[in-house]
């Protein structure tokens, strides 16, 4: 729902204008705010940043060792609760403390899902989000022997820049695609430059994604394949490579 539509349904709604750069929402404020939250969360366990506002947190050790919350001595657990059930219970206590600490130090609220593996925890978090529209999401992982392990990674594993063109704003010429790819590559180059300066990191692969449909067949389910190539630093080179990737993808898409 767009702002003017929301205003019709809820006249009292307070709308704010987010910062805009290159006719796109500027997410740098959110990105930096996310780093503040991650800094607090990472005190309790291995932390893997999953997106701009999501992290996986492995609290296994904290749940096992947290002083005063020893799962072996929990008196209120059911008799058939096994060790892993008790770890989850300890996890809820730790997450509650973390959420309080995040709120106290950053003013942000978090939603959490707690489970023995990342996927289930993520689903739990998603269910909670239906009822609690919090800004930042925390997912906890209490056991390492089910599913993928939480990777210790406080920095993002990739950088991206995207733009949607809904309805009549859909692009239909190579020139318009090139214009937007140039903008997106500029933004991506800025992120890469910051990462290089601040963290001494470089990216090695450039990937282009596009959503497309044929004007004569708007119900087509055919996907525009993602295309990748080695990433060469330099905005102009990235812009050139992105356009080449697009044209390769378009060629395949059109068969």
């Amino acid at each position: 729902m767009r702002g003017h539509e929301a205003k019709q349904v809820f006249p009292e709604i307070q709308l704010i204008q987010v910062p805009v750069v290159r006719v796109k929402a500027d997410l740098n404020t959110c990105r930096n705010a996310g780093s503040e939250v991650v800094a607090v969360l990472s005190r309790k366990g291995r932390c893997e940043r999953a997106s701009i506002d999501e992290v996986y947190l492995d609290l296994t050790d904290a749940a096992e060792k947290n002083s005063g919350v020893d799962p072996k001595n929990m008196q209120n657990c059911r008799k058939d609760a096994d060790h892993h059930d008790k770890l989850l219970a300890c996890g809820t206590v730790i997450v509650a403390e973390l959420r309080t600490q995040v709120l106290k130090e950053t003013d942000f609220t978090c939603s959490a899902g707690i489970a023995h593996n990342k996927e289930t925890a993520w689903r739990g978090k998603a269910a909670r989000m239906l009822w609690h529209q919090h800004w930042c999401l925390v997912v906890e992982h209490c056991k390492r022997d089910h599913g993928e392990e939480v990777q210790g990674c406080l920095l993002p594993k990739s950088h991206g820049s995207e733009k949607t063109f809904p309805g009549p704003r859909a692009l239909k010429t190579i020139a318009s695609v090139q214009h937007w790819l140039n903008d997106l590559c500029e933004e991506l180059a800025e992120c890469l430059g910051s990462d290089l300066d601040q963290n001494k990191r470089i990216a090695q692969t450039l990937t282009l994604h596009a959503r497309a449909y044929r004007s004569s067949d708007s119900d087509s389910q055919k996907n525009f394949s993602s295309k990748s190539c080695p990433l060469m630093y330099g905005t102009a080179k990235m812009q050139e490579d992105a356009l080449n990737l697009f044209q390769t993808g378009l060629h395949e898409y059109l068969g």
Partner: peptide, 18 residues
């Protein structure tokens, strides 16, 4: 003809400079 309703570019396989 074709229509593009979304574009994204991303950079991955990020490593620290040795």
């Amino acid at each position: 003809g074709w229509r593009i309703t979304g574009l994204s570019v991303s950079a991955s396989k990020i490593v620290e400079i040795p």
